[in-house]
Design a protein around this nucleic acid. Structure first.
Length: 961
DNA sequence: ACAGCCAGCATTTTT
DNA sequence: TGCTGGCTGT
């Protein structure tokens, strides 16, 4: 078994030829192509040891950049193992991330940095680094409010924005590309970057405007503009559709459109962006904080402007690891900080998957030309990069210590697999860039398979059970093959959601599986409950929302909650708890008490508490502020790492992004479904044309008349379509996932496998799920002899899943919007109470349908029956579904679309009943049972098992059934 | 090729 | 709300 915490093991006790070359070549410029599993960390640490072994070189002379703090720590540890320095001597050595390096530079020399941009403020030791995104967004909103008040002249621009934090995103993007504002303009020549380059744009334009099929078919662009102007309202000067697309039957958009689109007068817009950007820098400094982007921005400006400082900081040796993850500004910063040409960048373009983090693959794919260009830019008015830029020596590490040859060969296919049926990939030219890897093991026992089933989760679990203990999937361990265990297997997915769903499927069958990575902290039950109590404490209109959640959590059903809220008669125990909370002075104390009361003592609660404590210590925050931050956190899906309790022998579930650098004997790549890998938008690295265009798209309406007072931007509509849809980063993501596998690789899909999977050279087998340990509900099984959803009722209607605002809305709306469509509700009402009258066509349709069914479908009373005894209560509440039954299937009928399809078949109405047993208000148990009303037989069949269960339950709780 | 209509879907990764 | 893809009919 392999520990999933280490980069490929230093499998080579002695370096191979490529590694040796790199270790020994200490002086000069090096570009190292270090593919997956080629022992990169091993080589870099040895190289470091080799450099520092020279008589006149100290650790302080060597800059070693990594991209995570963990990687930096690991590097230090491993360097200690390789050279004479001990940990103490290396503790202060510059082995760190760009961000922490910038932080140190500013800490020591940053006082005047803002003045170089014309900002009258200083960076001091007390300036905080704001790492928390929700808090920064909160500040930014406040800033924008103030900005709007002070700048009436930008009312037009501001009106277009539906979400102010879009501007913050733009600012961060610009900062990562080295575009900074100054008091009276833009820093150095960064205004040019904002304008964009027409030539680059024209190339992109021509690319999508070439007629297809040898001239017989219109260009992608022209076809994309087919709907130009639909549901749009442009200003009168906009070209009309035919003018823009060329005459009927023409195959491409007229040439001059490119220029017309590009040469929009954006001066006003750029001025607006400038002022927001500049004022926000002032605002942040005024509040004494910097974000990650600004850290690099000011460090760069400082190193650029202060020649003496730059020279004193400059390193004799520089090494940058994971260079494919670096951004434009980081590349430039590295140039400024290198005093000699002893610069070595190590990376693998095939593993560049962080463009959303401003990583620019071009840094590595076009290293030489960028090096030249950036150096020239930096040297235009002073001698900042003084070392020779040539020659650049390329070193390729080709020996792979992780995977078998067949997995390595197979993974290359990921880099050329088309992402959609109409995408064509130039296989030859891509593969030309690939440095093929060679496995260092002779053994090749790899299974490479693909499988598919609509029930993807269960199919994956089934497959895992097939693998464990099966000698066909034997894994290598110390040169020997042994039988695989759960712990050898990792399921990799692109989204957290998929991983979480898989995990919950696994949980229901006691399947050993654990999720590793970040969780959406504010969407956990713990956070929602805390939010609820904060709202209750805050009082006012928010309090009811809080009570609804707390009551629901305690097992109260909708009708009861409705009653309690309306009369404000909250249970005494709850009122008592509220008074208790009111006495606490800090948010952290309140949080602790709430978690304590509900028995939340796990990792999630800890992290939440820590987060709240850190919020409080970094800012003075009212309860209202805290509530808003949690609310925003829920919306944005803010995530935070939570250390899950790791099982001893369990399957690991991880996202592909978080798995970089790790390895697993057996990898199952899940969710290879259509739509699961949407293309990432167009031009990543350079500002080809306006980054700001995106700000101009939105249209707002006059409240009274529906007339727009902001018009659609026709140029933006055309520009957007000039960006080709590219799946390059998605291909790299697949590649990363595949190259994590040491012994076996499996690809899994659900209903609809995506094009990537279909195009890969592997047979897609259908796999019937049969998870042996899955504890299927026996009652449902005997009743139907088929698989029914584990929890009955429409999706979303399980008591605890509504534990957020949904429950309040459901109560305050009358039966609410959160569960089931109106039509569905009508059906439910109509069956339960005969007096329901249809209002809409859909409802009339349903009524006619129900009336037309043979047999009697009426029930006399509402299925809500509270029982009480000795302060304990049992409540029942019901939801009705129409279930279509055939010999081997049963599905819940979607009233809206499925009725006609099933007209000739047999139906059942299924009433799912929830029993809640409340012994005290914080602990409740839910048992579900099903009752059936059949069309041909009006007798109500009560499942005898559930009746028995109810009786037992009632006895346990001292109730009369 | 293309207009018109309808249905389904609204990203995701994290230093 | 706004966009895309699929389908149908010229």
């Amino acid at each position: 078994m392999t520990s999933p915490s280490e980069e490929s093991a230093p499998a080579a006790p002695t370096p191979n030829a490529g590694q040796q070359e790199l270790i020994e070549s200490t002086d000069g410029l090096y570009l190292v192509d270090a593919g997956a599993g080629t022992g990169k960390t091993f080589t870099v640490t040895h190289r470091y040891a080799n450099i520092v072994a020279q008589d006149d070189v100290e650790p302080d002379d060597i800059l070693l950049i990594t991209f995570t703090r963990n990687a930096a720590t690991e590097m230090k540890d491993r360097i200690v193992a390789n050279c004479d320095y001990d940990m103490r001597a290396l503790n202060d050595a510059p082995i760190q991330t760009f961000h922490s390096l910038c932080n140190e530079i500013l800490d020591q020399h940053g006082f005047h940095a803002p003045s170089y941009l014309g900002i009258d403020d200083a960076i001091t030791g007390s300036t905080q680094i704001l790492e928390n995104k929700p808090i920064e967004q909160e500040y930014f909103r406040e800033f924008i409010d103030r900005f709007s008040d002070e700048h009436d002249e930008y009312a037009d621009q501001l009106r277009c924005l539906s979400e102010p934090t879009e501007l913050l995103d733009l600012i961060n993007t610009l900062a990562a590309k080295g575009v900074f504002p100054t008091a009276d303009g833009w820093y150095r020549d960064s205004r040019d970057a904002l304008e964009g380059e027409f030539d680059a744009f024209k190339d992109a334009f021509d690319e999508v405007n070439r007629p297809r099929n040898g001239g017989s078919k219109q260009s992608t662009l022209r076809s994309a503009l087919g709907r130009y102007g639909k549901d749009k309202c442009y200003l009168p000067d906009a070209p009309d559709r035919d003018e823009l697309r060329g005459e009927y039957g023409s195959k491409s958009v007229p040439e001059d459109v490119a220029e017309r689109v590009f040469t929009e007068d954006r001066d006003r817009l750029i001025e607006f962006v400038h002022d927001v950007y500049f004022d926000y820098l002032e605002f942040a400094l005024g509040r004494n904080y910097l974000n990650f982007s600004f850290l690099q921005l000011f460090a760069f400006v400082l190193c650029c402007e202060d020649d003496d400082l730059r020279e004193s900081l400059a390193f004799e040796y520089a090494m940058i690891d994971e260079f494919q993850d670096s951004s434009e500004i980081q590349f430039k910063l590295a140039l400024l900080l290198s005093g000699t040409n002893n610069v070595c960048v190590v990376g693998d373009w095939k593993q560049s998957i962080y463009s959303f983090q401003y990583a620019a693959v071009e840094n590595i794919t076009a290293f030489e030309s960028r090096l030249e260009r950036f150096a020239a830019e930096l040297n235009d008015d002073a001698d900042r990069v003084s070392f020779p830029l040539e020659p650049v020596t390329r070193i390729e590490l080709e020996q792979n210590y992780r995977s078998t040859q067949s997995i390595l060969d197979f993974s290359e296919n990921a880099l050329v697999a088309p992402g959609s049926s109409r995408e064509s990939v130039d296989r030859e030219s891509v593969l030309e860039q690939v440095v093929s890897l060679f496995s260092n093991t002779e053994r090749d026992h790899s299974q490479i398979e693909a499988f598919q089933h609509p029930d993807e989760h269960e199919a994956i679990l089934t497959k895992i059970q097939e693998i464990v203990g099966n000698d066909e999937y034997a894994v290598e361990d110390d040169g020997e093959l042994r039988l695989p265990t759960y712990g050898d297997i990792a399921v990799l997915t692109r989204t957290r959601d998929f991983g979480r769903e898989l995990l919950s499927t696994a949980e229901s069958s006691d399947f050993p599986m654990a999720y590793e990575g970040g969780i959406e902290l504010f969407r956990t039950d713990q956070a929602k409950l805390l939010l609820a109590w904060l709202r209750i404490l805050e009082g006012g209109s928010a309090a009811k929302r809080g009570w609804a959640v707390v009551l629901e959590r305690a097992g109260y059903v909708l009708d009861e909650i409705d009653y309690v809220l309306e009369h404000g008669r909250y249970p005494d125990a709850m009122e008592g708890f509220r008074s208790e909370l009111e006495a606490f002075e800090t948010h952290a104390a309140v949080t602790r008490r709430v978690f304590d009361r509900y028995g939340y003592d796990g990792a999630t609660a800890d992290v939440l508490l820590t987060t709240i404590q850190s919020l409080h210590s970094s800012t003075t925050m009212t309860r209202g502020d805290l509530i808003r931050i949690i609310e925003r956190g829920v919306e944005s899906g803010y995530t935070q790492e939570v250390q899950a309790a790791a099982g001893t022998d369990s399957v690991t579930v991880q996202t592909i992004h978080s798995v970089k650098g790790l390895e697993h004997p057996i990898v199952i790549l899940g969710n290879m479904n259509s739509g699961a890998f949407p293309p990432s938008g167009g031009s990543g690295g350079t500002v080809t044309y306006s980054e700001t265009t995106g700000l101009r798209q939105r249209k707002r309406y006059d409240d009274a008349h529906g007339d727009p007072h902001v018009y659609d931007n026709w140029r933006a509509d055309v520009l957007r379509r000039c960006q080709p849809t590219e799946y390059d980063e998605e291909r790299r993501l697949l590649y990363v996932a595949m190259t994590r596998a040491e012994d076996h690789l499996l690809l899994a899909a659900g209903e609809e496998p995506n094009t990537f999977l279909e195009e890969l050279p592997v047979e897609i087998a259908t796999l019937e799920p049969n998870v042996s340990s899955v504890d299927l509900d026996e009652r449902t099984q005997t009743q139907f002899s088929i698989d029914l959803p584990a929890s009955p009722g429409p999706e979303g209607y399980s008591p605890h899943s509504l534990m957020d605002d949904g429950i309040y809305e459901a109560v305050s709306d009358g039966r609410g919007t959160e569960f089931g469509s109106r039509v569905h509700e009508f059906a439910e009402d109509y069956v339960l109470r005969t007096d329901a009258t249809p209002d809409t066509d859909d409802e009339r349709h349903v009524k006619a349908f129900l009336d037309g069914l043979p047999g009697e479908l009426r029930v006399e009373e509402r299925a809500y029956l509270p029982l009480e005894a000795d302060g304990k209560r049992v409540t029942l509440s019901g939801v009705i579904d129409l279930v279509h039954v055939t010999d081997d299937t049963a599905e819940i009928v979607d009233f809206k679309t499925d009725l006609s399809r099933h007209a000739e078949s047999e139906y059942r109405i299924q009433l799912s009943v929830y029993y809640h047993v409340l012994d005290e208000w914080f602990s409740d148990r839910t048992v579900t049972a099903s009752l059936f009303y059949t069309a041909e037989d009006t007798r109500v069949e009560i499942d005898p098992l559930s009746e028995a269960e109810l009786a037992e339950l009632a006895t346990e709780n001292g109730l009369r059934p």
